[in-house]
Design a protein around this nucleic acid. Sequence first.
DNA 1: TGTTAGCACTCATTCAACAAGAGTGCTAAC
DNA 2: GTTAGCACTCTTGTTGAATGAGTGCTAACA
Lengths: 349, 349
Amino acid sequence: MDLDERKLKILQAIIRNYLETGEPVGSRTISKYTDLNLSSATIRNEMADLEELGYIIQPHTSAGRIPSDKGYRLYVDQMMLEKEEQLSQATQEVKDMQKLLLEREDKMEAILKQVAKMLAVNTNYATMISAPQVKGNRLKFLQISKLDETQLLVTVVIEGNVIKNHMISVNELLDDEAIWKLNLLLNTNLNGLRIEEINLAMIAKLKQQAGVYENIITAILDTISEALQNDDDIEIYTSGTNNIFKYPELADQQRASELITTFEEKQLLNELVQETLTEENSTGIQVYIGNETPIQTMKDCSVVTATYELEEGVKGTIGIIGPRRMDYDKVISTLKTLKSQLDTLYKKD
Amino acid sequence: MDLDERKLKILQAIIRNYLETGEPVGSRTISKYTDLNLSSATIRNEMADLEELGYIIQPHTSAGRIPSDKGYRLYVDQMMLEKEEQLSQATQEVKDMQKLLLEREDKMEAILKQVAKMLAVNTNYATMISAPQVKGNRLKFLQISKLDETQLLVTVVIEGNVIKNHMISVNELLDDEAIWKLNLLLNTNLNGLRIEEINLAMIAKLKQQAGVYENIITAILDTISEALQNDDDIEIYTSGTNNIFKYPELADQQRASELITTFEEKQLLNELVQETLTEENSTGIQVYIGNETPIQTMKDCSVVTATYELEEGVKGTIGIIGPRRMDYDKVISTLKTLKSQLDTLYKKD
DNA sequence: TGTTAGCACTCATTCAACAAGAGTGCTAAC
DNA sequence: GTTAGCACTCTTGTTGAATGAGTGCTAACA
């Protein structure tokens, strides 16, 4: 048995209706809702077929039907195809975002937080955004400065302009010349290298050349290695987690508590980010419906993600998390526009 | 009518019992619970008095009594007096924390997050911790470095060793000597100054001396001013917000949603931090019971805060947020120990 | 005068029974 | 192939009674 035109229309009608109300939808509703002019009995027959095919589910014998994950999937896939053309019309909301982004170009963290918040307010779903993650991880710049008699400041810049600072306490006195020499030594030897390329031999060589400052070199190298391998704790900002309470299917204590924890701990979200970044996709938009999501605690949710790219290899992920019956249309088009805006905005830098 | 010995004992018994169970406690329970050897009828008479005095409340006619804010307050105040001596015995839990703090002295942010998490796990309440806030706000160190042909890195260190970085795009080419001169110019003129002390006259003078690099000076000064006046967005880390679901009196959707939002937005928590930092107190521990808290959304909670001090004027706040019937004894002693540990740990730096 | 036993009373909670209503599946007729 | 009609199922909401915890009050007692 295959999906003919009519079954498709009925399925769409069921889903649309369910997205609005969140209640199981019955045959009589559909009979009036669509322009098919069919009686409820006919709809019932078709619905029985749709259920057999796995597109809809009956929560209990005498209830209407709700879409299954498979049903949502079909709906979303089809929507993605149809809506392709009218993407470019930016909504007022997104224009607001862009304005905000342009105004505060200075502070990445503040921008990302604002974007997350704005998305949450506009969509009424929970949102997350990950700070752009650098792939290359080459050392770009290194500088040691004397803060005062006992403390050195080490500034490390890695590819993608991620800046790390670290303070080192020293015992011996260092004069300006010693520091200048250290800077020269380290920069000439290490610049442009990846973490794997800084091996024991090189370290030994550096220490030897540093002479009496050997132990300082150790401390500095620790700083560098930490800066270069910080892929385990990327920043992720969330907003609107309280929105889950707006959807009864997510708001019971068990589920809510789990979701809140997931958002707070962030480390599970990180897995989601990694997943989206690897699984490349022509549109850059991914939709996970119910059990499709890589995060167990979100199995009753749908997750829509967009990856944005600031420059070659510097990518981040935006995610919107809501109930299965989220407004996919709005969410996807919002994310598409935002994504393209972020892409261009930063690329012109 | 005053509180005699017996009334006090009964009040304590009511509170202790309520802290455990969360259920209104009746006269018969108290009659058995205490070593007073009084019949339930007598207890009832005393409870009627206690209610008239405002220490306990009857949720409805045929229920037991629960403590009022006034009752809790009396209980806590008395506990604080009695427990003074046995503070120093650090629990295993707190020793774990200290170990963790010592191991990872390098990363403030990671430490604070860990402390918050550990506290949350150990107490089963929601926790927050604010990064230490610098009062002085003097410029300690300033450095401009050339990242590449088009970008300068400005590193600003302010009193209390807070480090800020900023990148500036430049059009004209700068050689090493020019940068060296800029560094010298800025450091000699600005070091040790507060933001109010960098006035228009000084800026004009700097610009004049900078000659062709006038516009770079402007950008750098912007960075400095931003770094110096960042008191509006201190970092606050939270953990264990999902713990509120463990207490039915906080777990209904309305309240939970509000609390979650408060924890997520953080800006209300900031007010709490400011409040605790100003309202000085000999012990450094503050207890807000129910409506006493400065944050409206927490009127059904109790909040216990401790201020810690890393060095002169560099202070932060730790807060534990739970239901009115929180285990004040445990929470206060844990915070006291943690506070003293933090105080000494960093002071020796 | 303080303490206690006893009793009537109140109120929240639980449970079963019941009615209402929504929706289905099936059959027979069109 | 479509539809009307009907019996049937299952959820939801309501009602009312039983239960039980706990109180306030009175009268007796030490």
